[in-house]
Write a protein that binds this DNA or RNA. Structure first.
Lengths: 146, 146
DNA sequence: AGCAATTCAATTGTGCACAATATGATTGTG
DNA sequence: CACAATCATATTGTGCACAATTGAATTGCT
């Protein structure tokens, strides 16, 4: 891209950022019909994925894993609590720390969520090699941005 | 992905969607320091890219190009108008249509924006081949999601 | 011409993202 | 043991995204 004339570099079709932005919006939208019956938004689903992998995690740990800050996560986790999927409690050892734990309903949702990746894979219908290459390239990009 | 056990498929590290989401957030954030001096957010910058390529475009045309709806674009373009970068006017031939045109200040901003893609390319520091492959893969993904 | 269907934008309401700041708990240092 | 610095989360304010609805202009059909 650095060998383009500046005016050419400003064309929408020359941007990497735009397909990235559009693809992210499109994928979030693609999840909606499968997550709505579970009562989850896409960012809420990501938080649940973290909790299903390891319950009893602090807000900060969730944030570092998902690269989201407290301004995003505090209200999001409160909504998960209002939906009865998680409990929020201060850590006994360190009162600054908020520990997020699954409720029974939150654990039960794991079973119902197992169809989601399969439904999305079916909708994408992307060859596994393309899928893995794209994932690796995106992870590389994220690493370059710190 | 379809050959994974469901529980495995629900691991965050197996998701394509998550690096896509995280990369999109990270790229938007990476633009911020270069766009803020121009008085633009990243979505506003995308709208300006469309207008710099062809001025006097309807809101619907901008929306189809950027895959954004009127609920997003109506207030965004009003903010661009408030910033003095565009004019909003109803089409003479069809009063339903809102035509968005650059002001003098909006055209002048084009020159100042030419550094932006170069600054971002420098920050990414990604080999052109990787850049192009990732862009092609993302466009392919967008096409699969309609 | 009349009128239902369509189209384009605006509005309303919910839920992110994130910068900036605030608040309270903990730690480190003299 | 004060007490400044740090740390974890919460709050405030701005700006997206998008579903759902509305309203007005236009088109199409008979």
């Amino acid at each position: 891209m650095s060998d383009l004339q500046p005016a050419e570099a400003l064309k929408l079709d020359r941007q990497l950022c735009f397909p990235l932005y559009a693809a992210s919006n499109a994928v979030t939208k693609a999840y909606r019909p499968y997550l709505a019956p579970l009562g989850l938004t896409y960012p809420q689903y990501l938080v649940m994925l973290v909790l299903w992998e390891g319950d009893g995690v602090s807000l900060g740990q969730i944030g570092r894993r998902l690269k989201l800050d407290s301004g995003t996560l505090t209200p999001l986790v409160k909504r998960l609590e209002a939906a009865g999927l998680v409990k929020r409690a201060r850590s006994r050892e360190d009162e600054r720390v908020l520990v997020v734990e699954l409720t029974e309903a939150g654990r039960d949702l794991h079973a119902r969520a197992q169809a989601v990746p399969l439904q999305l894979a079916a909708k994408l219908n992307m060859p596994p090699a393309d899928f893995e290459r794209l994932k690796a390239d995106l992870e590389n990009l994220i690493a370059r941005l710190g």
